[in-house]
Write a protein that binds this DNA or RNA. Structure first.
Lengths: 148, 148
DNA sequence: AATATATTGTTTGAAGTTCAAACTATTTGA
DNA sequence: TCAAATAGTTTGAACTTCAAACAATATATT
């Protein structure tokens, strides 16, 4: 196996961090277009964040996305207007707004999920990574490192 | 070592791809602010693309960035106006515009580079990844996979 | 050489994303 | 009760990007 010194390793990780994610975003965006889905990637991310929130209030969703509530309000406005999400005040605490996914949104998320699975599967297949326990473990470490 | 099945592995990679990149962007943006650099991340990316281009014409740079030439023109306009880059027509082919980095830009790129190195070093340190040849090799594969 | 076509960039108008700050409504705590 | 905290919305501005129309230069064809 080729030996990597620290400098090479750094450059590889650097490149990975800098370039790859952009490329993935572009690929995903193209996929949406190809399927005739009239949503931007950020709108899809909003839908994902709603799906993943235990209590999908404006605060929780915006927090998960790392944007301000104000920004989220405008995003939800258009998603609501386009018929992707519902919104209503919480009966218990009427300051809160609870957002819900309408069927149209669920459909998009399913397609998006399927696309992701396919992409990752093809990575595994082409790279024969299936049994790289160490890789997965390391990626998990990398992931948790950035959660802080 | 914990065993990961394909489904778990997929979810971890998925999460990595979806979330980490945004976080890194945010961290880098904050770093610029902290250092009093009045540039956005996209502007820094433009400078990086100029640095990495063998022949930094508008086409080459925009191509590397994955944006249209038109978009790049507006970006270069402001970077030029702020004194970060030079621009001049190519003497050989007067259709081309060759962009250059001025000292102010070089300084920013050096700082940005140093920050990246520091970030990756601290990942290595904290995660004790230094000797994970396999990880590096796998990341390289992952990286080259997305270059296609 | 003259003309058509291709290449390289710029400009313009529009849309999308985001933020900060001012504001409204509701809840909680003193 | 009344002040402070919390949850969201609105507004105005900046930034990023695109597509389409346009201008200039270079290359190919006749």
């Amino acid at each position: 196996m080729k030996k990597y010194n620290r400098q090479e390793a750094r450059e590889i990780i650097n490149e990975l961090l800098v370039k790859i994610f952009n490329r993935i975003l572009a690929i995903e965006g193209q996929n949406l277009k190809d399927k005739g889905i009239k949503l931007s990637m950020s709108e899809v991310h909003v839908l994902e964040a709603i799906e993943l929130s235990d209590e999908p209030t404006m605060s929780n969703i915006s927090n998960r996305l790392g944007i301000t509530i104000g920004s989220l309000t405008t995003a939800i406005n258009t998603l609501f207007q386009k018929g992707y999400v519902s919104r209503e005040r919480d009966a218990e605490d009427r300051r809160k707004v609870v957002v819900g996914l309408l069927p149209k949104a669920v459909e998009v998320l399913n397609e998006h999920d399927a696309f992701h699975k396919e992409m990752i599967d093809s990575i595994f297949d082409e790279m024969e990574l299936e049994k790289d326990e160490l890789l997965i473990e390391s990626l998990e470490k990398l992931s948790s490192y950035f959660k802080k």
